[in-house]
């Protein structure tokens, strides 16, 4: 069926069903459903991320944060790392430790990478979520294909509530809101992580 016939059928149905005065588009009071993050947002972020199965690391400085990342890469025997974060110092540290460091613009690296390292566009304390916008230097695969995802964030990126993320003024091609590692309960409701996306999600949070 063509577009106009399709729409005219909808229009007729809308009119036939609109017997009472039609409801206006409701405006939400800012407080409605607004959970917030309570008196200690960082603790809330940590707790929610932990409940979702992620791992929260607090760092006092960026240098500290890089040390945490290096430790994680070593502990997990990560060989190939994709660094989707403009942090020459971190790259130097990883290279010095003998880690293969790749950049997001290198073709064909994602399916074989061990660890993806990203920044964040936001973190949500209410839900323990990491928010990533796509950009040329921040492809979707970074936080998706490698079995381990490490995100680095500083405190300025934290919002209290999911509502604080909206409206997204000019939405990029993809906004990913990531809340913990990939999960499935499809086999007898037994929780299994890492079925498609990363099985491990680490948030290294710089909070001086």
């Amino acid at each position: 069926m063509n577009r106009d016939a399709f729409l005219s059928r909808i229009r007729q149905a809308v009119q036939a069903g609109n017997t009472a005065p039609t409801p206006p588009l409701p405006q939400r009071q800012p407080s409605l459903g607004y959970q917030g993050a309570g008196p200690d947002p960082v603790s809330r972020l940590r707790d929610e991320l932990t409940v979702a199965g992620g791992v929260f690391h607090r760092a006092a400085s960026w240098a500290d944060a890089f040390a945490v990342v290096l430790q994680l890469v070593r502990d997990r025997a990560g060989r190939r790392v994709i660094l989707g974060l403009d942090a020459p110092k971190l790259e130097t540290i990883l290279l010095a430790a003998g880690v293969e460091v790749h950049h997001p613009d290198e073709p064909g690296t994602y399916f074989d990478a061990d660890i993806g390292i990203t920044g964040v566009d936001a973190v949500i304390a209410e839900t323990g979520s990491i928010v990533l916008h796509t950009r040329p230097d921040q492809p979707r695969a970074l936080s998706l294909l490698p079995p381990i995802h490490i995100a680095l964030a500083d405190k300025s990126k934290m919002v209290a509530d999911l509502f604080d993320l909206f409206p997204i003024a000019t939405p990029p091609a993809c906004v990913s809101v990531i809340t913990g590692p990939s999960k499935t309960g499809d086999i007898e409701l037994k929780l299994v992580t890492g079925v498609h996306g990363p099985g491990e999600v680490h948030l290294v949070f710089v909070d001086p």
């Binding site: 929610e48 839900t127 796509t134 993809c174 990913s176 809101v177 809340t179 990939s182």
Partner: peptide, 19 residues
């Protein structure tokens, strides 16, 4: 509180993007 992945897609890949 949220499902693990909320994917908010607005149009196709933009110029310069890798995936």
């Amino acid at each position: 509180t949220l499902s693990v992945y909320t994917t908010i897609l607005t149009g196709a890949r933009r110029p310069g993007e890798r995936d």
